[in-house]
């Protein structure tokens, strides 16, 4: 009887239940239920490039479910980046701060439970104090008993205005990433996750930097609250390494990401 009463109490939680997000880097195809709103707080710490480098990205996201298949979200992004610079024999540290705004749209095409495979399209644009970005994703996922597998193909275009006396225009950077993740739910509330991210920077039609990140994470889900944490070390570099098996010029040695969320 006690169990039933507790379950009735938790029913409202079920009805508002979030989109079952398990991963921190890899997206799943599910969208927020119609009319639900969610606040997500992201924190990513990156460190370990060749020069002294650390970076903290903070994102506050407000997500809204618009229909059974569509959701949108607005982000406020704050970035703080510290790196060392050499000028002659003098080495100094420089910290840059950036603020930006992003808006994402996600359209679910196939449901990971009802259809053989879940599929969604994702688009995001960002307007920042120093650069602009466009991002597109194809999201695939599948639930198999206690396992969830997900894969994302991601393309990102970053545009930085160049304002010089003799040359003004846009400095472009193309990124093509491929994420693959799987999760195992060992209880209703906890899942162990494994995420892999294959990152590529493309310049003039050629891959200039390429590296694979792979890391373990933990996902904790309650009725209208969830928390995901992943440690992503760089495992191997394929392009652009400089006397290392890792590419520590373009990418960091390790990233940590924590996301927590509240649905209301």
């Amino acid at each position: 009887m006690k169990k039933i009463l507790l379950f009735v109490f938790l029913l409202n939680g079920f009805i508002m239940l979030a989109q079952d997000r398990l991963f921190t880097y890899t997206y799943q195809s599910t969208v927020l239920n119609k009319g639900n709103k969610e606040i997500e707080v992201w924190n990513t710490y990156r460190t370990g490039r060749d020069d002294f480098y650390n970076r903290l990205d903070h994102r506050t996201e407000f997500e809204i479910g618009l229909g059974s298949k569509l959701q949108t979200a607005f982000y406020l992004n704050l970035t703080s980046k510290t790196s060392s610079n050499d000028v002659g024999s003098v080495k100094f540290y420089e910290t840059e701060n950036e603020i930006s705004f992003s808006n994402e749209w996600k359209l679910k095409l196939l449901d990971p439970v009802a259809n053989p495979i879940g599929m969604a399209l994702y688009g995001e644009y960002s307007i920042g104090s120093k650069e602009y970005a466009l991002e597109a994703k194809i999201i695939l996922d599948k639930k198999i008993n206690k396992f969830v597998v997900a894969a994302n193909a991601i393309y990102e275009l970053e545009l930085k205005p160049v304002l010089e006396a003799d040359d003004s225009g846009w400095e472009k950077e193309n990124k093509a990433d491929f994420n693959f993740a799987c999760a195992y739910s060992f209880s209703q509330k906890f899942s162990l996750t494994l995420e892999n991210s294959f990152k590529n920077v493309i310049e003039e039609g050629e891959i200039k930097h390429s590296a694979l990140y792979s890391g373990l994470g933990l996902s904790h889900m309650m009725d209208n609250f969830w928390l995901n944490f992943t440690i992503m070390p760089q495992i191997k570099s394929f392009k652009g390494e400089y006397n290392h098996s890792l590419n520590l010029v373009e990418f960091e040695k390790v990233q940590f990401r924590l996301i927590f969320s509240y649905v209301f």
Partner: peptide, 15 residues
């Protein structure tokens, strides 16, 4: 590998 895993798992609905 990813296409293979997803392909194999996608043969039928989970429901």
């Amino acid at each position: 590998a990813v296409i293979l895993i997803l392909g194999l798992s996608a043969c039928a609905s989970t429901l």
